[in-house]
Design a protein around this nucleic acid. Structure first.
Lengths: 208, 208
DNA sequence: GTCTATAACGAGATAGAC
DNA sequence: GTCTATCTCGTTATAGAC
């Protein structure tokens, strides 16, 4: 996400101060990082307040409840992630290259010492308000759908090889990437993550 | 864990009431389930108090601080898990059977709608007191060490086949199982988990 | 070892001035 | 849209009686 390549659509004509991060967005940025590092139950409005030097009451003005903040967080993240997947598709590479690009999205998150937003929320799942649960499920489902298509395509073109259905392999890939991030944050860090990921991709492209 | 086979060492002579769950243990049982379902920051002493009908102050008598409770939780869990691995070794099966038995430990946890204790704590890692972090890391390291040995043995006996080092494959297996549990709790449940796991084991034993 | 009572603090959230 | 002030409740933890 956040790749270049669509600068035009961001242009806003005759706008005096092109501040690209208003308060509402900056709140989301901080909250996102806090969820990704500490979990939904591991941060508070006070943390955001301290970091942005904005009073807690102001935060509630933009996001009245923590549940709404959380829901907004997931919505923004999902939108961005879906865009990133579309960008991979538009780049027009072969299925193996697409999977590599997909894995790279995760690498970028872990490099910032963070867990996947929805992976973290999956851990907190049982304590989440319903709208957030729905968002997490939809995010995973969208990921699996995209992966399934890529895998199916790769199998047809004979550039990918795997046992079982495309759908099962998509579940497997998503799970493994989430798990690799989860474990790497406490044991092994980036090096471990990249070892696991390259083994995974290697398995899918080997025609031994 | 909790397998039979060592009944003798548990015998306590001339003990009147052979209560096998004193308060301290029952506290751990409830706390364990709460951590596995809600995370370390998603439960409180009040939750345990309500469930056991024991006052909060009594909980503090057994486990003065939440950090101590958490540390004790990890220690008990690790001890049990290591015992389960030893039991698998003693059963004397071939490496593929050992991996299957290993995966079954995870299946049993998910069936109870729980996440792996240390997997959950890995999500909460950044918010944990140091002694707990250490415990989580050691748990994962012990798992990888055991898996590495099994994989190495299987490769020698030609009953397992995989690309890359045994160590990397062990990391991969651990990550994937943790990730499969994590995701399955919000998307797909047991069915999805078992699909992913059987695909994983199938890949390791296929000599196509 | 368990209880009642309470301290000390932080959480999510609201009222209302500016 | 931001602020100060405040509310209510939950959290971890302690004191001291039984």
């Amino acid at each position: 996400m956040r790749q270049a390549g669509h600068a035009v659509q961001c242009y806003k004509p005759a706008m005096a101060a092109p501040r690209r991060t208003d308060t509402a967005d900056r709140i989301l940025d901080v909250a996102e990082r806090l969820v990704q590092t500490k979990g939904y139950n591991g941060f508070s409005y006070a943390d955001i307040s301290a970091e942005l030097k904005v009073q807690k009451a102001s935060l509630h003005h933009h996001y009245p409840t923590k549940a709404i903040l959380g829901k907004t967080l997931i919505a923004r993240h999902s939108k961005r992630f879906i865009s990133a997947l579309a960008a991979i598709d538009e780049a027009g590479g072969e299925p193996p290259a697409k999977l590599k690009a997909y894995a790279k999205l995760y690498t970028g998150v872990l490099r910032k010492q963070r867990m996947c937003l929805c992976g973290m929320l999956a851990a907190d799942f049982e304590t989440l308000p319903k709208p957030m649960r729905t968002g997490v499920v939809e995010f995973f489902a969208a990921n699996e759908a995209w992966l399934t298509e890529v895998l199916e395509d790769g199998r047809k073109r004979k550039t990918l090889r795997f046992e079982g259905t495309s759908s099962a392999t998509a579940s497997f890939l998503l799970s493994s990437l989430e798990g690799a991030m989860l474990v790497a944050r406490s044991l092994g860090g980036m090096a471990r993550f990249e070892t696991v990921v390259s083994k995974m991709l290697c398995d899918l492209t080997s025609f031994r």
